[in-house]
Nucleic acid binder design. Sequence first.
DNA 1: GTGGTCTAGACCACG
DNA 2: GTGGTCTAGACCACC
Lengths: 134, 134, 134, 134
Amino acid sequence: MIIEIDNHSGVPIYAQVIEQIKQYVLSGNLSEGTQLENVRSLAARLMVNPMTISKAYNQLERDGIIERRRGIGMFVKPMSKGIKKDFKSQTAKESFKKAAATAVLMKYTEEEAVDLLREMYRKLKNEEGEDKDE
Amino acid sequence: MIIEIDNHSGVPIYAQVIEQIKQYVLSGNLSEGTQLENVRSLAARLMVNPMTISKAYNQLERDGIIERRRGIGMFVKPMSKGIKKDFKSQTAKESFKKAAATAVLMKYTEEEAVDLLREMYRKLKNEEGEDKDE
Amino acid sequence: MIIEIDNHSGVPIYAQVIEQIKQYVLSGNLSEGTQLENVRSLAARLMVNPMTISKAYNQLERDGIIERRRGIGMFVKPMSKGIKKDFKSQTAKESFKKAAATAVLMKYTEEEAVDLLREMYRKLKNEEGEDKDE
Amino acid sequence: MIIEIDNHSGVPIYAQVIEQIKQYVLSGNLSEGTQLENVRSLAARLMVNPMTISKAYNQLERDGIIERRRGIGMFVKPMSKGIKKDFKSQTAKESFKKAAATAVLMKYTEEEAVDLLREMYRKLKNEEGEDKDE
DNA sequence: GTGGTCTAGACCACG
DNA sequence: GTGGTCTAGACCACC
């Protein structure tokens, strides 16, 4: 699982971790019952204070995304497909609303906005393809 | 110029001011050479400490958006159209990249993503239209 | 007489005016008895508040550089050659001391510093030559 | 690290701090990755309000000289040698340009200017040598 | 009139 | 422990 930390974004590190794990789980890229990397290992990998990871895991547990099995570790929690779907569409909507708002503000036409989206979408799709080849 | 402060968003007040003024300038709704509201007046209007506004203006000056004319006030800085365009397209690109990333992660197809964008775009356009009618 | 105002230097405008006129006079580029441009005209040319120019002239009068002839205008005051020479060498010394300090701090060798000075000197000399052609 | 504040120079305290830290970094006397003294400690040492130091650090971060590691402190930012060199040569150039301009205005010949520079350079070098002996 | 600087002290988020 | 934010109020320089 790839997690990227941006130290300059102003967003707290623990929040970045939460956000990215949430997306992995709810997009289906991290399936139910999978064990999460342990705190110390992930902390070492991200070169971050273990407390920070621990805080993120705790928050994810409170959010009902993952569950703690005593003495074993953290696991992705089973969720109804309905909830997942809701989350997906809600997340997507928020993200697209922001993009649309920017476009309207910058006085882009609808077609210009669509073109820009297609461009970015394809670029990311290609990168994804390359990642799989590795 | 309408500036709205959300005291509960967690975003610092000065950052909100910066963000909103930047948008006014880059969207062309605040034209070159226009004098900005003075520090104390804006501070009073937003019910905020003058230093907070001063900090925002200061940072906008360092970002090259506005300029200080000593003893007179702050003014929107003339920018070459090229630079302005770069600013705009970069802002838009960032915003769209995030949306595209979400779409890819959520396994939306390109067409699904485009449809969602069109939907959000039209919704915002309509709201904008209503605002003008007011 | 060419006077350049840098709005971003942090140095007060009136101080910039004083400094530059002083240099013109004491370097001999503005000779004794010459009438200075009047306040309003200079202010308009520099796109600056007349009060600012007036303040500069007053200061120059107090410094004994220029004199006010009632109802006529401001004139460059006669000065002994000794004073001029002292001023010249002192100004030069200060300026060179700063440059030398920078060089030492940046760990330039004496020869590197000299080379850099020669380069800048020649560049300015050439520009001066071009100005005369105009 | 020794930082000296002159309360009577008219130069803002925070600007003096910025200037001196910049010099330490660019001259190589403060190496990459070094942790800076924390805000409160430096403030106490200089007998100055912590916000004043904070402002200086903040600006140094925006200038790309230092970086914040959250919850830990401020550190000298790694810079490519190329960038550092550019910084240095630009600083030096500005300083020498001023000196050269003075020389040209004062009608010094190139050789007179060089002699004056050598004199000042050697004087400062000697003082530096004495400092090291202390 | 304008903005800039500094202080003293409180509170907060992050690690 | 770290730095960041905000306040209230004072004083200053500049135009």
